[in-house]
Structures are given as C-alpha cells and as structure tokens.
Design a protein around this nucleic acid. Structure first.
Lengths: 237, 237
DNA sequence: CAAGCTATGTATAAGCG
DNA sequence: TCGCTTATACATAGCTT
C-alpha cells in the first residue's frame, strides 16, 4: 500500500513521528522560502526542535547576518543624537515627561509579549512554532497589552481566585518593573538546591557557559535594587 | 491552460502576487497545524502582513489564551518565593553576586536577540516571517550573544570604521544598559519634529494610542537616569 | 535510523462567473 | 477584486535498501 489519506492525529510510533516531522519541517521551510521569493517578502525562518541538535535556519544564516548588519546602523542613530542642536534642547525638555511615560508603556508591553510568547510554549515544556510576519511586529506591542488586560478582566469573572494573582502580577509589573528582583534571586537559589518543577524545563546546552560566557563585562552596580529583571532569569538562573 | 510549472521568482503582477500570498499563507497555516497535530507539537502561528489588516492566528487564538493562562502560574512562582525559609537565606546571600552577574548576562542576551529579530526585518522596513520552535527558545539566548560577538570580530577586520561603532554600542549596552536613555529621548524628540529616516519605518496603527493606551499606571521615578531603555523605544517613541 | 523510491493525496496556478 | 473550479505540480506516507 502506498499512502493512506493521512489520519490527522498524533503519530504514536516514535520513529514514524520523527520521520514525518523531518519531512514536513523541510516542506515547511521550502514553503516559506517560496512565499518569500514569490511575494517578495524578506522572510526569516528558524526551526529548532528537540529532534535536532542544531537549529534549522532559512535563508541559510542570512537572516542573522542581516541582523548583525543592523547593529552597524546603531551608529547612525548615534549620529542623529549628535545632530540635535541647542535649538532643539528646549523643546526636548518640554516633552520629556511625556516621552518617559510612553517609554514606560512600551517597555511594559515589550516585556509582556516576550513573556507571553515564551511562557505559552516553554512554560509548558512543549515544542512549538511561531510564525510572525515581522513587517509590523509593532502590532504585538500595540495589541498584547490591551488583549491581556481585556482577557484578564473576562477571566476574573469566571475564575476569580486564581486570576486575581495574575492581575496583581501584571499591575505590579506595570507600575514597578524592578519589584521582581527579589523573586528572581529566590528562584535562582532554589534552582541550585532542589530544582523546582519549572526548572525541569531548563536544559542549558553547556552548564559551564552559565557563569562565564566569554564576556568580561564589569558587573554594573544598581543603587536602587536589582537591574530590571527579565523573563530569562526564571529559566536561566 | 491550468497551472504552469511555478516560476520561482517574484510575481510582478500585484493582484496575482496578493492572490498567491493569500493562498500560500493559508497553506502554510494548515501545514503548521498539521505538523502540530501529527507530531504532538504545541505550535502557535501568527501571520501578520501588510496584505491584511488583522493578523492571522493559529490555532484560533488559543496560543494567546494559553499564554494568558501562563500568567496565572506566576502565582505558583510566588508560592515558591514564600517557601524559601530562613535556613536558605544565608546561602542565598552567598550566591547573590554570582546570580546577579548571570542575570545581567542573560538580560543582555535577551535584549540582543529581540533587537536582532526586530531590526533584521522591521529595521529594513520589509515584510518577513519568523518561524521559531519555542521548545527551547533558550537556544537563542545562548547562541545570539556569542554569534554577535563572533561576527562583529570578523566584520571588524573587513569594515573597521563602521563596525567599530557597532561594537562600541554592544559593549556599552552590556556594561551599562541605562546609557541609552539620553539617546532615546533625542530620538523621540526628533520624531516629533522632522521624522528622521528610521521613523519612516514607524507606522503606528492609531496615532492617539501612542500616548494614552487605557492604562493609568503612575509613572515611576528613576533616580539614576531613565528606566532601562528597550528596543521598542526606538520605533515607538 | 537515514536515504531513496513511487503512488497518491494535497496544494494551488489559471480560468471563469 | 473575490470566490470557486479544475487540471496539474508538488509534497509526502509507506516501503525498500
């Protein structure tokens, strides 16, 4: 027999599942490649799974290369900075408070989307795919915050008790990003001792790398609490 | 005639290109869906493009829903925090500096990968796709930092002048994340005046949203400079 | 297992309403 | 421009090596 009608269900057989994954992953990569070429979309695809040690990247590593090239342009921004002359200084001060508020909002949204993306999958210890047209990643920044608040409001009604904590967490994060510091430390310490449940999700490639990653930055001191904690702290203590 | 051999090249005709995009996008979504089902991968797919106002999400909005559910688990982490007893307090202090160093490294890598992903595509004002198996997003955190440094070293040799700034930028970011604050302000101000080149890439959905997003957080004050700047500041000043 | 090999199910380029 | 149809190119399940 050659090929049945593809039962759309989990493939129990390990070998078969792996084979299928490999084939379909390749197919998916090709599709992305084609979509990119045909529609003139500058696409980047990264597929990383427990099936393969090295991540699959398309196109080649061009996406990363380009990204690196972007870093060069940072200097252009610096130039812009210097181009600001005295005349603009006054106006700059006037809008400063406003800018700072906006900045805070955006930073919060950034943190939220990253947490959302990460926890949604890694937090569950599952595998996953994310396909994002980055033409306007800003959508996520714009939308996530609103949606989260909206959904939490709705969820509050259905499961008030457990949801309460989540809301509180959000509020805290918004108002004072640095208030996670203590928790981070605790989590980190716990990890070195008895590996709590969420640490099982953590499988660092090289244990040794955790401490010395080939960087020799001087550790900056933060007079007011710890540096703004990031979601990675929870998983890479 | 029905169907030619698919010339793998940019489709000049606008209508045809849009049609193809739509079809293939749907196909891609289906493929992801199938891969998820067949291989037991908890996948999430988001496709956003200039072709469509609303982003395509698979599975439905389940991914986001799940993400929200994750937020609930934050309370579990809080529980862990409280579970730390006096006995562990000493040891906690002992490894604190070490943890802080690691934390700093991870935060820097996080910032880098986000910048890389974003600038690689949005920075160029192009459309794009990112497919990431989030089973171990940590790979990015592990890898990006190293690769960036590595590549910058190589690039230094080929284009020393322009690359110098990039390297410096990186170093600065690593050593003192808050030193971007001033730059952010400048960029923001410039945007309100004469829209520099990199602002052309900025197309916020709702102008009004930028200032008031329905949140009424009190703006925290940062005694030492501005809050840790985020990449979003550059694009959403 | 990985790599090849068909036979067949699917995706989809063109045409049409 | 959109949706639907149809003929065909492509992807790939199940085997074989």
């Amino acid at each position: 027999m050659t090929r049945k009608k593809v039962t759309l269900a989990y493939i129990a057989n390990d070998a078969a599942r792996k084979a299928t994954f490999k084939k379909r992953k390749n197919g998916l990569m090709k599709k992305v490649s084609e979509l990119s070429t045909l529609c003139g979309i500058d696409a980047c695809a990264i597929v990383y799974s427990s099936y393969q040690a090295e991540p699959e990247v398309w196109p080649s590593t061009l996406g990363v290369h380009r990204a690196i090239a972007r870093f060069k342009n940072m200097s252009e921004m610096d130039q812009s900075k210097r181009m600001v002359n005295q005349q603009e200084f006054i106006r700059q001060r006037i809008v400063k408070a406003e800018e700072q508020l906006k900045k805070q909002l955006h930073e919060n949204r950034e943190r939220e989307i990253v947490q959302v993306m990460y926890r949604a999958l890694v937090g569950e210890g599952l595998q996953g795919l994310i396909i994002v047209d980055l033409n306007d990643l800003g959508w996520m920044l714009d939308k996530t915050g609103k949606e989260i608040e909206e959904r939490i409001k709705k969820l509050k009604k259905s499961t008030p008790s457990s949801e309460q904590a989540a809301s509180a967490e959000l509020q805290a994060d918004k108002a004072a990003p640095e208030n996670h510091a203590a928790l981070n430390d605790v989590v980190a310490v716990e990890a070195t001792q008895n590996q709590p449940w969420y640490m099982d999700l953590l499988k660092p490639r090289n244990e040794g790398d955790a401490l010395n990653l080939g960087r020799n930055d001087p550790m900056p001191s933060y007079p007011y609490g710890n540096p703004t904690p990031s979601w990675s702290d929870f998983y890479f203590p």
